[in-house]
Design a protein around this nucleic acid. Structure first.
Lengths: 237, 237
DNA sequence: GAATTTATTTTGTGATCACATATCTTTTAT
DNA sequence: ATAAAAGATATGTGATCACAAAATAAATTC
């Protein structure tokens, strides 16, 4: 097959991931970990310069995220990071309860031993991150924990819809993550999820994830109000 | 303002809609009315030639629809029309019941007189199309009817998620629409929705839309089985 | 003759340029 | 000094080209 390549030196494989995918993942990650300011506007040229890529891949990544409703788009096609408000927060909360409740039921019904082992592993990672107080890592492992559970539900399209909602909440999640009270209540809900899954108890699983989502939404709403009226008096810049 | 333009001849306004949007809408419409064959593969160059546009707008439209999960993508980025199976059908059914149930409750709670009038109008259009037996028109007015109701729910993001699911079902919807039995049962559900909305009865509204969705899914599943095993014996090409 | 290899074509990705218009800055007039 | 207008800049859209890799067709070998 190879005529004369046996004496080649050791070479590391080059990246086969397309540029647009790299850009997409990086932007998505940045969004979900809250590294963009709400309202901040993104431009193709600006990002392509910052990323060292040409405009083409950035353009595609932005449009994809746009299609996933990750941005607010002006009539002229300009892109801004979304800012959260109470009404949207509640809308997302209700939709998440509906969809993720469904997924938890399915997962409880279908999961096998391998799923359970890996979910437990993800839970342990999450616990570790929570104890360490590492916000960034807590966010990542939290998404991974939920994602692993929903993977057992084997419902690709529903999962995609849920991830879209996460993408909206991303910047917000990052805000509450450092709150130790929230963390505590959240981890309690997570342990309930784990237990319900172990027992294959669909109703309990749905109840537990509902608790998790409602708690997060409540914490966020409190925080949102604080941000909009910071300190009552001193807010008059 | 204008120095000397009063004597210009009458000119019709040019289209201010971007090409990519035109392509996007056209493809979306074609998908939802089932004008593509399941499994059919689409190419950028092929479509751009067929549409008389350059590759750029087609590329963007395809990627957007792809991000909305309208297509099945191969590892190498090639795009095929999705084909439906029972498992996916049921998954979508359950997600739709969850989300559209939510939307119907919200609509029943919030809708005002203007909403009600327009919804009733949409219902009448739908009834007319059903009586006429015009499949294409029935599909369009059916989407319009549901869309108008959900508009009253004022839940933009949830609505977007629902439309994504419709996009998957599109080709299938087109298959059951000609079935008169399905049409009859569907219109019954629609009248129940209308009544529930008029009474602002959230529970009844949810129940009615659930009935509509479940009925459609059941009809589709029957049809799907017939398509996969056509005539039992003669299927051996 | 079937399987493997080689050549050809097709196709998505990425780069670059032109262009129209939205957005920002400066100027001008009242 | 404020508002309207003119100019300059920034930015998304669309077109075209080059390229690598995949898909397909043709040829060759055993």
């Amino acid at each position: 097959m190879n005529s004369d390549e046996s004496k080649l030196p050791h070479l590391t494989q080059v990246s086969r991931i397309t540029l647009k995918d790299q850009v997409y993942r990086q932007l998505r990650e940045a969004l979900m970990s809250g590294r963009f300011k709400p309202g901040q506007k993104l431009t193709i040229r600006g990002l392509s310069e910052a990323l060292g890529a040409s405009q083409m891949p950035v353009r595609e990544a932005l449009h994809r995220l746009s299609a996933e409703n990750a941005f607010k788009e002006t009539k002229t096609g300009r892109i801004r990071i979304r800012s959260m408000n109470t009404a949207t927060l509640r809308e997302i909360r209700d939709a998440r309860v509906a969809l993720e409740g469904l997924l938890l039921e399915r997962a409880a019904r279908r999961l096998n031993d391998e799923d359970m082992t890996e979910i437990r592993q993800a839970y342990d990672d999450l616990q570790t991150a929570a104890n360490a107080g590492d916000t960034q890592r807590y966010l990542r492992t939290n998404f991974a924990f939920h994602r692993r559970i929903y993977q057992a539900a084997d419902a690709e399209l529903t999962m995609a819809a849920v991830e879209n909602f996460w993408l909206h909440m991303g910047p917000c999640f990052a805000l509450v993550a450092p709150d130790s009270q929230h963390l505590e209540r959240s981890m309690l809900a997570h342990s309930r999820i784990l237990e319900a899954l172990y027992e294959h108890d669909e109703a309990a699983a749905r109840a537990a994830v509902t608790e998790d989502i409602m708690e997060a939404a409540a914490s966020l709403e409190t925080l949102l109000k604080q941000l909009n009226f910071p300190d009552r008096k001193r807010s008059a810049q």
